[in-house]
């Protein structure tokens, strides 16, 4: 691990990982271990650099050092460059890590006029009544048109393409976008 011990004045720079040298193993607990260029890292974490736009490209790989600090090993440019088995492993891990219910249908949206919105929605995880406080800050549309909803418990929901939903749902949502 010496290579990554922080030397005091070393300038940090982007380190692209060599996909052929990466070898992940998945543990029963769901964690990933990594072997890279002869070094072993336990319980590494994969992070999407741009979780909104690129799901498979630019994935940061980091591990926790003895002082509980996350240290970045490097960035994978595209997980599709890896072997199929390795790629699937990573993709599955990322999907798990970034799991968020998608809203597929909106039954009703009620504004209780006390700063709360109640959305009765069908999500990929089942039906749920979502309470949103101060929707102005908790409804976010990003540049690609995806709507992110954060409810008053801090849970998140996505709608990747609101305009592609059924007309009724869209008309209900439209007012808040």
């Amino acid at each position: 691990m010496n290579e990554y011990k922080q030397t005091d004045f070393q300038i940090d720079s982007l380190r692209i990982l060599d996909v052929n040298e990466l070898h992940f193993t998945r543990l029963d607990s769901g964690y990933l271990d990594l072997e890279y260029k002869g070094n072993r890292y336990e319980q590494v974490s994969l992070t999407r650099l741009q979780p909104f736009y690129y799901l498979d490209t630019y994935i940061s790989v980091s591990f926790k050092n003895d002082e509980d600090e996350w240290i970045e090993i490097g960035v994978i440019r595209d997980i599709n460059d890896m072997s199929k088995e390795q790629r699937d492993l990573c993709a599955e891990y990322l999907q798990f890590r970034y799991y968020v219910p998608l809203i597929t249908k909106v039954h009703s949206i009620r504004d209780n006029r006390m700063g709360y919105l109640f959305i009765d929605a069908e999500t990929t995880a089942g039906r749920k009544r979502i309470a949103v406080n101060d929707w102005w800050t908790n409804f976010r549309v990003n540049n690609s048109g995806m709507l992110t909803v954060t409810d008053s418990d801090g849970n998140k929901y996505y709608i990747p393409h609101p305009e592609e939903m059924d007309r009724k749902s869209y008309r209900k949502l439209e007012l808040f976008m």
Binding site: L27, G30, D151, D153, G154, N155
Partner: peptide, 14 residues
């Protein structure tokens, strides 16, 4: 040590 997953929840419950 082995790690086992007991349950899963939305981050609002954390």
């Amino acid at each position: 040590d082995k790690h086992v997953c007991i349950s899963r929840f939305s981050s609002g419950f954390s």
